[in-house]
Amino acid sequence: MSQRTRAADRPSVRRPGENAGAFSPRPRPVRRARSEQWAAWAFLVPVAVYLLAFFAYPLYRNVELSLRDYTVRSFVHGGAKFTGLGNYAKILKDPAFVPALTHTIVFTLVSLAFQFTIGLALAVFFARAFPLSATLRALFLVPWLLPLIVSASTWSWVLNTDSGVANAVLQQIGIPPVTWLTSPTWSLVSVIIANIWIGIPFNLVVLHSGLQSIPGQLYEAAQIDGAGGWQQFWRITFPLLRPVSAITLLLGLVYTLKVFDIIWIMTRGGPTGSSATLATWSYQLSFGNLLPAFGPGAAVGNLLILMASAAGLVYIRVQKRQYQP
């Protein structure tokens, strides 16, 4: 995952049980008088207008782009021919489609698996305080807070085939240099490694806060019964952490699907499309070539929206169910 997306895309971290969203289980205040309704909406008008102008309209433009045959000329001067689902048919038949879809799925699932496992292991490790634990845990947040361009360009240099430090280390333990970013075999692996690194802090923080809500007495009781550390993890921690884990993984899914910056900066989806995902392919079509293909680019983007919103709806459902009695 990354963020920022929009680094941005960096998700907010919620404390389990205290949801920030609209679905908190609290009694609804009694509906007020009509004048108060007017006042309430007066406060909401800016955000409602904002949502229409800066979310709904760009989305609408994107759908419109995907349904017409745009050229650079018609993009500027208008008059593009309406082609219905022609752009969608075109991209589905494109030889780049299946690889991009496969890479998106592999990128997302492998990233999530490693980020979650490493994040969970670290969360358990940091669960009980020891000297310096708070400071060191805070330092783990650094990769999450860095601008993605910084992380991505640093990793590009670390993984440079000829003079990167990664190959220098491998050489010292007797492994021949790996062509990380320059060969189709390794490019996807390379961007996945960088993405895992960026996503670990988020998993660590959320799972750590989840661990804090498991009562300590459970572990004490288990210890008295003679359960070892491993058994305690599988019998207490893992089952009780399930709700938080589900939320973490689903949010991670949404945010990893739309990762663009890291891949684009490190490999531009190459070489020869070997690390292209739907996100980078969409950008490539619209902005990456001398002759932009806005229609197909928008169509790929809309497919991505469908995938992300499906994951998003599942997330909201799960979150709602968990936080409502």
Partner: peptide, 13 residues
């Protein structure tokens, strides 16, 4: 949940 590049394309237009 909306991917940034898609918003960017709409903004660009």
């Amino acid at each position: 949940m909306i991917p940034g590049i898609i918003m960017a394309m709409g903004f660009y237009a």
